[in-house]
Nucleic acid binder design. Structure first.
Length: 488
RNA sequence: GGCCCCAUCGUCUAGUCAGGCCUAGGACACCAGGUUUUCAUCCUGGCGACGGGGGUUCAAAUCCCCCUGGGGUCACCA
């Protein structure tokens, strides 16, 4: 049996799309489970659109996700180089040999002529396709014109017949060759095109399985024919269902954020991103929604991949994020949330380190209240405001003002608080205050709403005695005093 | 439009390949209760689907055909 080798071959032409991430995850998991190799190859055949920056983003993004490649442009490997633009030599030789064997031919048609043909076909409501103008050209003439320096592209000659794909998720799919154009393998400038290099490089890198998005299904017969022409055994193919937007069309920027970077910036935990992506087109057992990446690797099989497209459900993604956050331990969550706090200018990295316990306590109180890391800073804003300038949100202030004796109640509470042992825990205080409220003949909201407003300016949130402890008694008392004035 | 793919709750899906265990299971969302100092968490319950029509069969969500619907693709992009 030949070695199991899979690859992901992204083109570095933009942000790291979630679809790429999912395809990478599926390929990687498949290889990992079976002891195969996972290869990263940069498909930069489009020199004008490819950028180094994008390549860097892909390498960083996929690495962040946790998929590790055994061979790639950054780590090298036995089949280097792993950047297609650096493999031109092999491509050129193959094109020439295909020309010699009659599987390909020179096409001297100008882009202008091709455009005219296409326009005429469209006007006649025909399917646009190459009209085969140069297909039957005499070999000698072709050679003569080439020698004379006339520019030409190289087209692959599609023979008569049909091709059947044995797709691992879709079964057999047959294409009549009449439907396939004599496609261009090499442009007039000599550079090879995708359908050509992808086959050439997959052969060179001994790729055994090609798992990619469904949009590539119709390319597959072209590639299969090329494998045949070159005399190589093709890999096994599997076409993954597309990830769809709310509009049920291929997920694109129109329907929302599509790049990995967007979700990282929005504070989705890595585990949630991975988990969610795994659920797009695949399910563990239909019952278990939450699982880690090791479990995914353990259970993933290409045969169990869904055929129908999967609509990207942001609500479920968000829920998965929230669930992941709730299950983290506080130290870990603190670390994840710290960059967002720093970015918001609330604390510096040093301050976070110096006040580690305080910070973790701050985080612990929000663990069940945030769905995304990015939601943390706005929720703890009051803890970074001046005691006499806490931002009162409308709802909080309105709630506080409902209570007639609010100013007096706050005053009496302040007195009560001053009388408590300064080292008393928040838990003990919370218990004690209930008795006090009863003694005072108050209802809970009559104290808690004005108090919460004075302390945090918010209508809801963590336990108030937790707030007091976080603030420190002095600051808490200052806020109550300021609140008495502001709520008068 | 041609070709190709697909079709279970609004969404992600289990069940389909090996027809009966399915009066179709889980999750998100939504609704209603409960817990709670608020918010949130959490718990309980509810709503909710085999696109339609023909077959095959004792029996079909599962097999076959047609229709309908959705998607992909038709570049000297990948």
């Amino acid at each position: 049996m030949t070695d199991l080798r899979v690859r992901i071959a992204p083109s570095p032409t933009g942000a790291v799309h979630l679809g790429l991430c999912r395809t990478a995850l599926f390929n990687w998991a498949y290889a990992k489970k079976r002891g195969g190799k996972f290869i990263l190859r940069i498909e930069d055949t489009d020199r004008t659109r490819s950028t180094e920056e994008s390549e860097r983003a892909i390498v960083e993004g996929l690495r962040w996700l946790g998929v590790q490649w055994d061979e790639g442009p950054d780590v090298g490997g036995p089949h280097a180089p792993y950047r297609q633009s650096e493999r031109a030599e092999g491509h050129g030789k193959q094109a020439v040999s295909l020309l010699g064997s009659g599987h390909a031919y020179r096409c001297f048609c100008t882009p202008e002529r091709l455009a005219e043909v296409r326009e005429a076909q469209e006007a006649a409501k025909e399917t646009p396709r190459y009209d085969g103008h140069c297909r039957g050209m005499d070999g000698a003439e072709s050679q003569r014109r080439a020698d004379a320096g006339e520019p030409f592209a190289i087209r692959f000659l599609i023979p008569e017949g049909s091709t059947t794909i044995h797709d691992l998720v879709r079964g057999e799919v047959t294409f009549d060759h009449k439907e396939i154009d004599d496609w261009i393998m090499a442009r007039r400038d000599g550079t090879p095109t995708y359908n050509f290099v992808v086959v050439s490089d997959d052969v060179a890198m001994e790729i055994s399985h090609v798992f990619r998005g469904e949009e590539h299904l119709v390319n597959t017969p072209k590639q299969l024919l090329l494998y045949q022409a070159m005399g190589y055994e093709p890999p096994r193919f599997a076409h993954l269902p597309l990830m769809l937007g709310k509009d049920r069309k291929k997920l694109s920027k129109r329907s929302g954020d599509t790049s990995l970077g967007d979700y990282i910036a929005n504070g989705y935990p890595k585990a949630a991103i991975v988990n969610f992506l795994c659920l797009q087109g695949w399910a563990l057992d239909g019952e278990t929604e939450v699982f880690d990446v090791d479990t995914f690797v353990e259970h993933f099989d290409i045969e169990n991949v869904q055929k129908a497209g999967a609509v990207f459900d942001i609500d479920k993604f968000r829920w998965l994020s929230a669930d992941t956050i709730r299950r983290m331990d506080v130290a870990e969550l603190s670390q994840e949330v710290a960059p967002f706090v720093i970015q918001a200018g609330q604390m510096t990295a040093d301050e976070i380190a110096d006040r580690r316990d305080w910070f973790q306590r701050l985080v612990a109180g929000e663990q069940e209240r945030i769905d995304l890391f990015s939601e943390f800073p706005p929720r703890v804003r009051p803890f970074f405001e001046a005691d006499d300038a806490v931002t009162f949100e409308d709802q909080a202030e309105a709630g506080a003002r409902k209570h007639e004796g609010r100013v007096e109640t706050l005053g009496r509470f302040a007195d009560w608080l001053r009388g408590r042992d300064a080292s008393e825990s928040a838990e003990a205080m919370a218990a004690a205050v209930k008795d006090w409220v009863k003694e005072e003949g108050l209802k809970f909201p009559a104290l808690f709403q004005p108090l919460r407003c004075a302390l945090t300016g918010m209508a809801g949130g963590r336990d108030l005695f937790d707030c007091i402890e976080l603030l420190g008694r002095e600051s808490a008392l200052a806020r109550i005093e300021a609140g008495q004035k502001r709520l008068a």
